[in-house]
Computed example of a mutant assay.
Amino acid sequence: MPRWRDLPEELDPQVREFTGRLRTLVERSGLSVVAVADRTGYSKSSWEAYLNGRLLPPRGAVEALAEATGADVHHLGTLWELAERAWSRSGMRHDVTMEAIGVARARAAIERFDPAARGMDARKNGHSPGNEWPRVEPPDPEQPLVASAPVLPARAASAGQAPDSAEPPSPAPSPPSSPSPRGRKRVAALFAGGLVGALLLVAGAVLLLDAGGDGEKRGERPTTAPATSARQQLPEGVKCAGQDCTGQDPQAMGCGAAATTAADVTVGTAYVEVRYSETCKAAWARVARAAPGDVIQVKAPGANGGAARSQSARVGADGDAYTKMIPVDSAARATACAALGGGTRACTASGGRG
């Protein structure tokens, strides 16, 4: 029996379920991956990628595997369609995420190297670059002023001449004048004024923030209180729940990814099942291996004595179909029925698998 690697954690639940079904078929057949590759016409490396969840196999490979293992081609094809849609949705989410990361990086680079962008960001945060107080460093009255000593010309020193016969040295530069006590006081006053102004700005900002933050303590309500809708609380990719799912396509609304089969029944070659999503609180009917023109229906009694709910769909040329959704608070309340050719009608048992 082949030993499979653990499937990737980020794999979509629908794709994970489909990959597990492929593994089961290979294990039950007793075939090795090499034998599967030989019988299906797809390479060994391709099947290793398919069975380890790294790639989704094409439909031709799935049909070839069904023939090699004796599985039902139509049923396996239906599962592949669901996995293929889930795989496409995961790829779209990845593309959107990478695009958002790229935009964030570009924005950060612009703000880093563009002074205008930094100024705009500072104004958004309540600061104005033009209103910042300059930093004034006061002089240190205790630091001594050092003046350079006069230097004799090198020619006179090297010739051994007496100082009185040497060329008159260039007058030494006058040492910088020490600031007067009045000047030091003026600089210190400027520095103190700048420091006081900066402290006043900080205190004003703190008071403004404190005034806005204490609104709830004083019983004041914020001017805008965004309401949190139920849709914002749904997992990523799920677009409806409960009543909002009425008449919606389960795949388009993201409800099929984590759905389970709540009840099923087989009539002749037709396989009828109730699909239920706990996240979406909705159910729908699905049929495989039916004849074109057959009708599939999902129904549930009304809540609190209300009218019953139902959705129907007609089977196409491929023999598979599923209905739109109806809201239900539990899987046990939904029933799937199929009206087949020759007047045959079959329904799943209410409250469990048929």
Rank of each mutant, 00 (worst) to 15 (best):
A108Q: 04
A108N: 07
A109C: 07
A109I: 00
E111V: 00
E111L: 09
F113T: 15
F113G: 13
D114A: 06
D114G: 08
D114Q: 03
D114S: 14
R118D: 07
G119M: 03
M120W: 01
M120V: 09
D121V: 09
D121F: 01
A122R: 06
N125H: 05
P129S: 01
N131G: 03
E132N: 01
W133A: 13
P138G: 03
P139N: 00
P141W: 03
P144I: 00
P144K: 01
A147R: 02
P153C: 04
A154H: 09
R155D: 07
A159L: 12
A159S: 12
G160F: 02
G160T: 10
Q161V: 15
D164W: 08
E167S: 12
E167N: 08
P169I: 11
P169E: 03
A172Y: 02
P173T: 13
P173C: 06
S180C: 03
S180I: 05
G183H: 14
G183V: 06
G183S: 15
R184T: 12
K185I: 09
R186E: 13
R186I: 11
R186A: 15
V187R: 07
V187G: 07
V187Y: 08
A188E: 15
A189T: 14
F191D: 11
A192K: 11
G193E: 06
G194D: 10
L200D: 06
V202K: 00
A203N: 10
G204A: 11
L207H: 06
L207N: 12
L207G: 15
L207K: 01
L208T: 15
D210G: 13
A211E: 10
A211N: 13
G212F: 07
G213M: 04
D214S: 13
D214F: 06
G215M: 00
K217N: 14
E220A: 11
E220S: 13
